[in-house]
Design a protein around this nucleic acid. Structure first.
Lengths: 239, 239
DNA sequence: CCCGCGGGTTAGCCTCGCCTAACGACGATC
DNA sequence: GATCGTCGTTAGGCGAGGCTAACCCGCGGG
């Protein structure tokens, strides 16, 4: 039972797992992976992140080489992806088996992911048929092996006039999720991309025949890929 | 998100929940509820239990009045039963929905019970049809209202020659559970009570037509009630 | 009557994870 | 080239929850 005398590396605290997860996410979003961005992500003072990074370095999960760059070691990445896998399996499980609405599953999974044994993780995966994506369209890392966490393009960068296939929606804002769900914007849905109003105005999209205006912050939560890639390349790199 | 500024009483730490659970269990088993027995139950040094009891007293969950007796307040009992409810709901859920074998559910639930939101607790209960008992036959406390945690009689006190209906099996020893399961001793099963070998020898019971010998420690894990209560009263109080 | 012993508490210490405040280093700016 | 933010780290604390060692109290036995 003691948390002290375990294998020197295999039992991570819930906090450590949260930091590892944050590292994977920042990396995947292409953001800088620095003490500050990590602190912001896990909602903690920079000094706290600094201390935790020292601990993670000590555990061989992270390499910082003393400089500014923070990089997961192979070992650290394996652990981190494991946590992400558990999180997304739980989300999928809650949505499919218990009908928890997709805007609530994230918060629940945030706590449950730390309480799942490997055996239970396997059972859930099996029960769900080894799903590849969670309810938000996030890819579920495999038990072991390669995993691509990269995000498709954001909706706000899609070319006007094109069709955009929604593949993945950020799960970090529950209210936004609920709103998008009401509008019908979900992974798997294809929407029409309309005008972008000037001066930071909304982006007009057509969902199931209805036009609606999405504020930029909202549009940026929606990711996917452009269908009929005629002349899209130019617009796509407009940011 | 912060664990600091919540309602001053409503969010209990996982440790506190474990202690509250221990209190309910000791009480139900008729054992003395003292610092020592609590410490033993939560596998902690007596001094640690002492400190925690001070905290629980401070939170108005426990009354000790300074003397030796440790008693749950109404408030404390409500919280404690809530934890027990979550634990047993999780056990039932794991067994029914994920086919986790009954000797494993306890350990998993031990961690998951602290990570369940009230909403999820309700969803699980609903999904399972508001079950009244978990896989070991332990009664699940209702959402609110009265609850009887008392144990039926132990098998080792059943009168020789009678029939004994198994109602509840202690979930604390996983190996024992697995063994009992192999023998066919489960809640709902009725066994025949045979001779008790002398000098602490095993108790012979007949399960589904087969006779097997249960050591006393094992027999004491099995609880239930005597069927055909002819002349049982005498034997039942023999300890 | 006193002694020993079992059980509870106190004292003192540790780790983890968080905080704020102060400090230092580095790049942009004047 | 001096100055000022922006970042990161260090220093110093705090609370929760553990531990060991020492102490204290009450009770049964000699």
């Amino acid at each position: 039972m003691s948390s002290t005398r375990e294998a020197p590396c295999c039992e991570l605290s819930a906090s450590m797992e949260d930091y590892l997860k944050a590292l994977v996410h920042l990396e995947a979003e292409g953001r800088a992976v620095t003490t500050g961005s990590i602190a912001h992500r896990v909602e903690v003072a920079p000094s706290s992140a600094s201390a935790m990074l020292r601990r993670l370095r000590g555990a061989g999960l992270v390499e910082g080489s003393g400089g500014h760059e923070v990089v997961l070691t192979d070992h650290g990445r394996r652990h981190a992806l494991r946590v992400v896998r558990r999180h997304r399996l739980v989300e999928t499980f809650l949505a499919e088996i218990l009908d928890v609405p997709w805007d609530e599953v994230h918060e629940e999974a945030e706590r449950l992911e730390h309480a799942l044994s490997p055996a239970l993780e396997d059972r859930i995966a099996t029960r769900l048929g080894e799903p590849s994506h969670d309810p938000h369209g996030d890819p579920i890392p495999p038990r072991d092996g390669e995993h691509d966490e990269a995000w498709p393009d954001p909706l706000d960068a899609a070319p006007t006039g094109g069709r955009f296939r929604v593949e993945r929606v950020s799960d970090r804002d529950s209210d936004a999720l609920r709103y998008l769900d009401e509008l019908g914007v979900r992974p798997g849905v294809t929407v029409g991309v309309g005008e972008r109003d000037p001066f930071g105005g909304p982006l007009w999209v057509e969902v199931a025949g209805r036009w609606c205006a999405l504020g930029l912050p909202l549009a940026r939560l929606v990711h996917g890929s452009v269908e009929h890639t005629e002349d899209a390349a130019r617009v796509r790199r407009s940011r």
